[in-house]
Design a protein around this nucleic acid. Structure first.
Lengths: 289, 289
DNA sequence: ATTTGTGAAGATGTTCACAGCC
DNA sequence: GGCTGTGAACATCTTCACAAAT
């Protein structure tokens, strides 16, 4: 029963990305695609937030809210309204002055901008705890991100269905991914085999990788890699704990502007470990005392 | 105006952080003022990268490499050497011109800066697939982030040990967290109960939260929230797929530098979305139509 | 009367390039 | 010669504040 399903959503990110279709700024009017592309170059930071707006908007749509002001949406998304309006302006002018935005229209435009009108099959490599979590994640399949392939090294897992999809051996990555038209690869293996897995995914034509392994992947220019690193996240939090005291009762509270949300920054790793034979856990954290 | 604590909540954190508080450390032992506190304010973006450098350095230390140049470290960490040097300069001058940096010294200084010399007990709320992954993550306990408490709603899980720690009921969050001196809370529940769990963690004095639920958490000013949102990450990748074709047209190929992994930015969530349905207990994923 | 859309100002972050030290 | 440390130039992102539109 969850009808409607296009929502999706979430947030943040960070890399620059210009959306320019072709010519950069050549003099004279350039090619005019079709949709009055008001959008030209969408800042990477804005792309991440658009995903969050989309989630909030989906929630509003579910509650039959048909219109929202930038202020309301901004509060719900945890950003300031000026930023929200600017973000939305990158994808075009779909608001009505004095009124606000129509939820349905905005959802459609953001989905179009994020390329969610197309299906993106996902392959998860490394079926450990994290891999299982990803394979069973209901948020993907119900939207445009069906998990269509699973890989691991462990012979005992071959053919075993996880979240409905049988696990294949990583040696078959190229073949299976090509066949199932995988466009996004999620690497949830220990650090050890991550680079090799990555190479195979790239060989299979996958150009987008979500890396949970604590390693810096080496990829060709055209491949987009996003990293999620739990250890790094923990350490960033640790840094903040160190800065400000903790249970602090009534400290003067140093400035530290701390504007607010938004973020950027790095990420953490996922970590599962156990993807094969006796691989170590591999983690990416501190090391010796 | 969106007065009050709206800030934070979601994305990352972005604020500058001053490392000043010289007072804190040194519970007993005199704290050498020697540390050339060159550091004053460390950009948030730099903090995230320091964690990455630390991991690379640890790897070098394991291989008995004693010295590295900024160029080598930079390549391994996926950043440019000028940036790396600037980042390191925020924590002090520990390099030797004409030579490079001593691995051991740098590790020690970064750990000190990130507050890794102190133990940070972690509580994981929501023992679903993701919660299990976190509880079993070998990278945390072996380092300074022991997972010391687990919580869930499911009665069947009460007392069941996961990764060695028995699960407690979320109603006991305040009591247990206070007792075990939890400093970091990881929320791996469905979006639905995330805010409530968050409130309890805050009540228990937890000031650092790692949120995997697809919601913008509302927290008091002094609490630091970092978000990890898988759906958002997927959508960001989707955006990039949409931009550049996949294997297709021979577009002029705009530059889009896009170096590579580095990271910066925020992240993904765990997500589930559809917050109501008859979700099961609390797990950070699943949920489905 | 409101609320969007956006130029311009301000903040933050990145890269350059070179002086200084080994 | 080689490499760090860093001011200054540059690029990106955020916030302000106000004109335009309804």
């Amino acid at each position: 029963m969850t009808a409607h399903g296009e929502g999706m959503a979430d947030d943040d990110a960070g890399a620059t990305a210009d959306v320019s279709s072709a010519s950069r700024q050549s003099p004279g009017e350039a090619d005019e695609p079709e949709v009055r592309e008001r959008a030209r170059v969408i800042p990477e930071a804005a792309v991440a937030r658009l995903a969050v707006y989309l989630r909030v908007l989906s929630g509003l749509a579910d509650r039959d809210v048909s219109t929202v002001s930038s202020e309301e949406l901004a509060v719900a998304a945890g950003v300031n309204s000026a930023k929200l309006r600017k973000d939305l302006s990158y994808i075009g002018s779909y608001g009505t002055r004095g009124v606000g935005y129509e939820v349905a229209v905005l959802i459609g435009q953001i989905e179009r901008t994020l390329g969610l009108t197309r299906k993106h099959s996902v392959a998860v490599v490394g079926i450990g705890n994290l891999g299982h979590a990803l394979a069973n994640y209901g948020g993907f399949p119900s939207r445009g991100f069906p998990v269509s392939a699973l890989f691991d090294l462990d012979q005992d897992l071959m053919g075993v269905p996880v979240g409905g999809i049988p696990v294949d051996h990583i040696d078959d990555i190229v073949e299976v991914c090509t066949e199932r038209e995988i466009t996004i690869g999620a690497i949830a293996t220990p650090a050890k085999g991550a680079q090799e897995v990555c190479d195979r995914l790239v060989e299979a034509g996958v150009t987008c990788i979500l890396n949970f392994a604590p390693v810096v992947l080496q990829v060709p220019e055209e491949v987009e890699v996003r990293k999620v690193d739990l250890a790094v996240e923990m350490q960033i939090l640790s840094f903040h704990v160190a800065r400000r005291g903790q249970g602090g009762s009534g400290m003067p509270e140093p400035e530290v502007s701390k504007n607010e949300a938004d973020g950027d920054d790095a990420a953490t790793t996922a970590a599962n470990h156990r993807m094969n034979t006796g691989v170590d856990p591999v983690d990416g954290m501190v090391v010796r005392p």
